[in-house]
Design a binder for these strands. Structure first.
Lengths: 219, 219
DNA sequence: GTCAAAGTTTTGATTCATCAAAGTCTGCGA
DNA sequence: TCGCAGACTTTGATGAATCAAAACTTTGAC
């Protein structure tokens, strides 16, 4: 049973690991968790000895398959809890992240299973992020970043949860997972996207950096 | 913000403190929390310096009003969570204690308030134990131990949650908080109570030690 | 090819919570 | 009053997680 500290390291590493299997630099992990690099080095050696990461001195570390599986379990807990807090407890979209951050380390498997059941075995959390199933398999998502999209009809699949202010803005403008809109134009040089939200019919502009936080699917 | 360790000390002390304000012996606290006495002594000095207990060397310790208030907050959390798990999550009566034990230390005030609201500001947990209100006031309970009762009509107010097997037995026999029954006879010398459960109409015997775990109210 | 900047590891400390075992009271019975 | 058993306290150590700062590699610039 990994401690909640260890779970947070695994989660951070999963979050930072891209497509390839480059090791993750110690400094990036330290930044993500707001710890000093020395602390992270110590922990990487420890996790290495527990078989959860491959630690490559001076190059970084990467999750082993065991570590990856453990990280996905934490992610599943986190996302199911978030969804539960929004759907059942009716807390605000933007407020649930911190709460889930704490609960994910203490909730029992039985209670988690009950939540999963009450929510009808969902495959995405309130931000549209996919929820790994009980065996740690991630549902496939066919979607791309709005920042790279060509004009056309789209549906929001996922909103990355990093930025609270952006989250509020999107929510107010009706851009939540599931919302449909028309991308009217995308001016690459200036980085300005013009879009028309279906439903409200409102037109609005969006910068490409903000658009990078939206993952969309053509309709 | 007391750590969860500190919260557990306060909860244990509240649980052990009787009617008078005798200090609680260090050994009893150690027994309750399954720690060595030395550990408890150290912690009592620490809690003393934080104003949560009065520590009287070689005599014991007692909660200060501040400590008592903090303990009641934890108790409120614990009992509301238990009730939530039974009422909303539909977990078993007997399974919720351990779960609540963990959750009580991490749940936010906002989430707790939401639970309280969803449950309609309840005053007793699934075992019938009173839930302190948000200001730390305990609802009054007019009830006595079944072990001291004379024959007559009664209603179960509270079932102490210590003994899992007794809990199951009582639950199967329809003796839960709110259940009504007739105490047919109470033989003090042998310690045997004979009672007839209203509803099922079943008659059954109960030992006085088991009866000591039931708190009842005449009907 | 050398050197400085950037990033990493090491070292030595700190805090919290805990234990085992040695030392110290305290009160009870003779 | 003495002695001793039992309860309590002290002491020294441990493990987890952390930091600050010194020491050490790389890497990129010139």
């Amino acid at each position: 049973m990994p401690s909640s500290t260890v779970e947070n390291y695994l989660k951070a590493m999963h979050h930072l690991s891209g497509a390839g299997d480059e090791p993750i630099a110690i400094g990036r992990i330290a930044g993500e968790l707001e710890l000093t690099p020395g602390t992270v080095t110590t922990m990487m050696k420890h996790l290495g000895s527990r078989g959860l990461v491959d630690y490559l001195p001076r190059r970084g570390a990467r999750l082993t398959p065991t570590g990856e599986a453990a990280a996905l379990k934490v992610l599943r807990r986190h996302r199911l809890i978030e969804l539960f807090l929004v759907e059942v407890m009716e807390l605000d979209w933007g407020d649930v992240h911190d709460e889930a951050e704490e609960l994910e380390h203490v909730i029992s498997d039985r209670l988690l299973a009950r939540m999963d059941e009450m929510l009808g075995h969902p495959t995405a959390d309130p931000h549209g992020a996919p929820i790994p199933d009980a065996d740690g398999r991630m549902p496939e998502q066919s979607c791309a970043s709005l920042a790279e999209a060509e004009p056309g009809g789209y549906q929001v699949v996922q909103v990355s949860e990093e930025d609270g202010a952006l989250l509020d803005w999107l929510s107010e403008h009706g851009l939540r997972p599931g919302s449909a809109f028309q991308l009217l134009s995308h001016d690459k040089p200036t980085g300005i996207l013009r879009l028309k939200i279906l439903g409200s019919g409102l037109e609005t502009n969006l910068g490409s950096n903000a658009a990078g936080h939206l993952r969309v699917q053509p309709t």
